[in-house]
Every structure is written in C-alpha cells, then in structure tokens.
C-alpha cells in the first residue's frame, strides 16, 4: 500500500501519517513546511521502521506541483491512496480580513485539492483499488458567519466528493469525506477549544481515533464520516432546520466564543 499525504507535517496530516506508519504503509509525504517534513520523516522511520519519501511543495503553485509530479514520475511511484489533509483556516469577519488571505483559503482548500487529486488519480497503481479521502469539516454543514469562506470551502469539498464518488465508482475508487469537529492539533486550536468551554470540549474529536477510523472507513468504501455522537446530532439538525436560522444561531455562538478566544490569545 503506497499512500500520498498532503499537509503531512502538522495537525491531522501528521496524525494520519502516524496511523499509516503504524499500519506499515509506504508513505510519500508532502507539505509546504520542508523542515517539519524532515522531522516527521525521521520520527516515522525510527518508530515504525518504514521508508518514507518526502518532497516539500506549495500545492497552490502550479510549478511547484509539476516539480513534485516530476519526482514521482522519475521514481515511477504509483499510489493506492491519497489523503488530502492540506488545508487552512482563517477566522473572523469577512470585511475585516486580509483580502489575499481570504482568497488563499479557496486556492488551497479547493483549487489545490482538485489539482493534486486529479494528478494522483492519474498516477494510481493500475489494476488495484484506489482510495481518496477529502478532509471537509463539521463547518461544512451550515453556512457559518465569521468563518464564511472557510465553511463554504469545506462545503465545496463535501459536494465535490459526493459527485466524484459516483463518477469513479465504476473504476473501483473509494471516496470518503471526513467531517470532524474541533481537533486539538496545535497549541492555538487547544486554546480555541478551551475558550468554548465544555461544549467545545464535547465537540472535540480525538485526533488518533479519527485518524484510525477514517482510514478504516475509507477502505470499507464508506462515503462520509462525522466523528462523535454530538457532531452527528448537530449535522442531522443542520439538515432539518432552515439554513438562515442555522446561520443566525452560529453567528451568536461564534461571536462570544471568538471574543473570548481573542482575549485569551492576546
């Protein structure tokens, strides 16, 4: 099993890499952070006695991706799985945020994900089943004021993946969309969850089990994975109440949580 993981130097990507390492999969890791990549490569090789290939790449940059593909083709690497973990978040009121940073969310979460998915599908190992995971978010289930761009970019992935899944069915391709709630990946996300109090903690998903179950379900051909009972209830409610109401409720909640978060982190 050969797996390509994007965004592998941090957060969920690194946790997925650890999970694949535990399963002794062959890994090809990419991330924009070259130093982080060499750390996780070293860690995985020491822990699991596997070989790990890495190449730093800015997925939003076409030339950078072409270089990555050159390396892959030169070594004739072919894949059985693609884990699209690269993505970014950038919270706050739309009009108060930096314009280019906002555009970057869509460039990375959407445009770059399409680019790498297309490229790696073309480089799947022939005659074998192929598996793709898209990392959407619980934020994709309703329009989210104060996270408007981010949530919409995650909605894009949710809908895109559901459609792509049908197109690729005949070609023996599994497509899974992961919709996690908060996950404690960095000190900042941890402080964010702390600011949301006990509800924040209750919607938080443990990184290690999300990683394990994501790969299990993707291999089993499931279409969507929402970790945690509470998150599944929330996502069910979101489907039955009007979207304008949901958006208003979200606005009220985020507004207080964010001002608290800003006061903690400043």
């Amino acid at each position: 099993m050969t797996v390509l993981i994007t965004g592998a130097a941090g957060g969920l990507g690194r946790a997925l890499a650890n999970e694949c390492g535990r399963r002794r999969y062959n890994l090809f890791l990419t991330d924009i952070n070259a130093e982080g990549l060499s750390c996780i490569k070293q860690g995985l090789e020491r822990q699991f006695d596997i070989t790990v290939a890495t190449a730093a790449c800015d997925l939003t940059n076409k030339e950078s991706v072409d270089k990555l593909l050159d390396i892959i083709d030169k070594h004739e690497i072919r894949f059985d799985m693609l884990l699209n973990a690269a993505g970014m978040d950038f919270e706050g009121e739309f009009i108060r945020r930096d314009r280019e940073q906002l555009v970057k969310i869509v460039l990375l979460n959407n445009a770059a994900t399409l680019r790498i998915t297309h490229a790696i599908l073309k480089r799947r190992r022939p005659g074998r089943q192929f598996t793709i995971v898209f990392v959407s978010s619980l934020a994709s289930i309703v329009p989210m004021p104060l996270k408007a761009t981010y949530a919409a970019s995650k909605r894009f992935l949710l809908d895109f993946a559901a459609a792509l899944r049908q197109e690729l069915r005949k070609d023996d391709v599994n497509v899974l969309t992961l919709c996690p709630g908060g996950m404690v990946t960095t000190k900042d996300t941890m402080l964010g969850i702390k600011a949301q109090g006990l509800l924040g903690e209750a919607t938080t998903n443990p990184l290690e089990s999300v990683s394990r179950i994501t790969i299990d379900r993707a291999l089993a051909g499931k279409s969507i994975y929402v970790p945690g009972i509470l998150n599944r209830i929330l996502s069910f409610l979101a489907r039955i109440i009007p979207r304008t109401w949901a958006a208003a409720a979200v606005y009220r909640r985020w507004n207080t949580a964010q001002s608290k978060w800003l006061s903690i982190s400043s």
Partner: peptide, 11 residues
C-alpha cells in the same frame, strides 16, 4: 495533556 498531541517528530 488532555488529548493525543504530537511533536514535530510525530511523538
């Protein structure tokens, strides 16, 4: 720690 969190090496 309260949660599974890893270092740069993934430890």
């Amino acid at each position: 720690r309260s949660w599974y969190m890893t270092t740069n090496e993934g430890y």
